[in-house]
């Protein structure tokens, strides 16, 4: 892809521009135009009325994490530590243990994500060889009054539900 070059004329050389005051007045006229228009009719403000009007979350958007399950309800995660290895914020802590449900040999005994440390980069999702961790819950607002409230444990992660149809997620990727 070749870079497109856009030449921007250098301003500020003419006498009128160097007088500065005239240009200031022009600028102030522009900003006052916005002010006056918005003052007369504030329905045209370029804002989203959050939190009453929630934002539209696209499929690729990285929300709170969840651990996915097989159709029979068993956990997909096999505690390979790829997410923890790749996490640049070191927010994932896994403790592995023996797995006895016959799916694999290994499963996480403890899987904790510290959302206060998480930077929502999505590397864990990229790294997961088994599509076991996803950020498709569509949860964009995580809040709590205690630090513990931001520690997601295995049950909380497994309880998370995807917010999008599976086909859309697969198409959109994450």
């Amino acid at each position: 892809m070749s870079a497109r070059v856009k030449t921007i004329a250098r301003r500020g050389a003419s006498l009128q521009e160097r007088l500065y005051l005239i240009e200031i007045c022009k600028g102030m006229a522009t900003s006052f135009g916005h002010f006056f228009r918005n003052l007369l009719d504030n329905s045209r403000l370029a804002v989203r009325h959050y939190p009453e009007v929630p934002p539209e979350i696209p499929v690729r958007w990285r929300g709170r994490h969840r651990l996915t399950n097989h159709p029979d309800g068993t956990m997909k995660c096999v505690a390979c530590f790829m997410c923890q290895t790749n996490c640049p914020a070191h927010c994932i802590t896994i403790e592995a243990g023996e797995r006895l449900d016959g799916r694999a040999e290994k499963m996480p005994r403890r899987f904790q994500i510290d959302l206060l440390e998480c930077i929502y980069c999505g590397y864990c999702v990229e790294a997961c060889p088994l599509d076991a961790i996803r950020m498709d819950t569509g949860i964009y607002s995580v809040n709590g009054t205690r630090r513990d409230a931001f520690l997601l444990d295995l049950t909380a992660l497994q309880a998370g539900q995807g917010a999008f149809p599976e086909d859309d997620y697969q198409k959109g990727g994450a």
Binding site: V78, A79, C80, M82, A104, E105, K106, P129, L130
Partner: peptide
């Protein structure tokens, strides 16, 4: 190729 669960990985 169960490297994710293999200790040798």
């Amino acid at each position: 190729t169960d490297c994710p669960v293999c200790d040798q990985a």
